[in-house]
């Protein structure tokens, strides 16, 4: 069962620092910093190091990933590096030295997400696999259009921040909404899914969560896996 609720008009660029920033290693905000951000989403979803990485590129990403440093940027994100980390250009070497198997595929067809800067990342380790389709919309900002995680398959509008909670407990939604409300964080959109006795709640948030809000959400870690993108 999927329920999509439109609660508010979507604004992609919510902060001054989405247009003045990020501080980053060149050369391209959409193809380097944005690509890194998509890699970082994959890193957060897997919650650990992968054994295997497969990256599929579409359109502008497929044509220019070599020149724009997109390859090392995505892998830097997968390894959890920040955009201004000086190890970013060496990320592929670092990953390979840790035995991570990496492949890049240039797709010739149109982007499944309808955007010229599209990357489809698959990560796998001993325990699980995840997949994320991200688009880099400019200035380092990204949207997450599709996620596969723990048997759930989500199509999203995709503006960050996004919070995902996966739990075997059925009535988590009210508690999550209560916490968000108490920190004055508005919900733009929400999604609820159920599969094999597991429940997934996804919230598109209007503003970032501060440290206290994250701490309170982390207290739910015993009963739910909480991921903040």
């Amino acid at each position: 069962m999927n329920v999509v609720v439109k609660e508010k008009k979507v604004i992609n660029y919510k902060s001054c620092f989405d247009v003045i920033g990020p501080v980053m290693i060149g050369p391209s905000s959409s193809h380097t910093a944005g690509a890194l951000a998509i890699g970082l989403v994959a890193n957060k979803l897997l919650q650990g190091y992968p054994k295997k990485v497969v990256v599929k590129y579409y359109e502008s990403f497929a044509e220019t990933h070599k020149g724009h440093g997109t390859d090392f940027a995505i892998i830097a994100g997968v390894l959890g590096f920040a955009t201004d980390d000086r190890r970013v250009p060496d990320s592929i070497k670092i990953a390979k030295s840790q035995g991570i198997e990496i492949s890049f595929i240039e797709e010739t067809g149109e982007s499944p997400a309808g955007h010229p800067n599209t990357a489809d990342i698959y990560l796998e380790n001993e325990n699980r696999w995840i997949r994320v389709v991200g688009i880099s919309v400019g200035g380092g900002l990204i949207k997450v259009k599709h996620i596969d995680i723990d048997g759930f398959s989500l199509d999203l509008e995709g503006s960050l921040p996004i919070m995902i909670a996966i739990s075997e407990k059925v009535n988590l939604e009210l508690e999550l909404r209560r916490i968000l409300k108490s920190y004055d964080v508005e919900i733009n959109d929400s999604l609820y899914m159920e599969k094999n006795g597991k429940y997934l709640y996804e919230f598109d948030l209007n503003s970032q969560l501060n440290d206290e809000a994250r701490e309170e959400l982390n207290k739910l870690n015993d009963i739910a896996k909480i991921i903040i993108l």
Partner: peptide
């Protein structure tokens, strides 16, 4: 500096930094 993969601030992008 951007082309040399140095540290820059995207304004609004790296190509236009």
């Amino acid at each position: 500096v951007n082309a040399a993969m140095g540290v820059i601030c995207a304004t609004p992008t790296a190509g236009a930094s």
